[in-house]
Amino acid sequence: MNDSLRTTEICHDPDDDSGDLIVDFSPDVPAYDLSLGESQDLELVNEAIVLKTIRHGDSES
């Protein structure tokens, strides 16, 4: 999927020293087949934050 959407969302630090970031997506952001509890890989690309879904059972090579 190469669909992209530029939006501004609210992020929270869970204050548990985990290094996690919680992003509250607004209702106009499509779910793109995300499931509750799935993780997102966060990467900075050309001054934009890019989210990639990490599916359960995926492994990086």
Rank of each mutant, 00 (worst) to 15 (best):
T7F: 07
V29P: 00
K52N: 10
E47N: 15
I49D: 00
Q40L: 15
I49A: 08
F25N: 02
E60K: 09
S39E: 13
E38Y: 04
P14Y: 01
R6Q: 14
C11S: 11
P30M: 06
D33C: 12
S39V: 04
S61L: 11
S61D: 14
D28Y: 07
N46H: 11
I22F: 06
H56I: 12
D3H: 10
S59K: 13
D41I: 10
S26R: 12
V45L: 10
G19N: 06
I22W: 08
L42A: 07
F25S: 02
T7N: 06
G37L: 06
N2Y: 08
L34F: 13
V50W: 05
D16E: 08
G19Y: 02
S26I: 09
N46D: 15
G57D: 08
A48N: 14
R55A: 10
R6D: 13
T7S: 07
L44H: 02
G37D: 03
S35W: 04
P30G: 06
D24C: 10
R55C: 04
D33S: 15
S35Y: 11
I49Y: 14
G37F: 02
D24L: 12
M1P: 01
D20N: 12
D24V: 07
E60G: 02
S39I: 04
E38W: 05
S35D: 15
L51I: 07
S39Q: 13
L44R: 09
D3T: 09
V50N: 01
D17G: 01
D58K: 04
G37E: 04
C11E: 03
D15A: 10
D58F: 10
L51R: 00
P27K: 07
G57E: 08
M1L: 13
G37T: 03
P27L: 05
V29G: 03
S39T: 05
H12E: 09
G57Y: 04
T7D: 08
V29Y: 04
D3C: 06
V50R: 07
I22L: 13
R6T: 12
R55Y: 13
I22P: 00
S39A: 13
G37W: 02
V29F: 09
R6G: 05
D24Q: 11
Q40M: 15
I54W: 05
D28W: 07
S35A: 11
D58C: 05
L5P: 00
G57A: 09
C11Q: 03
Y32I: 01
E60Q: 09
D16H: 02
D20I: 00
Q40R: 06
G37S: 09
V50C: 10
L36E: 14
P14R: 02
L21D: 01
G37K: 03
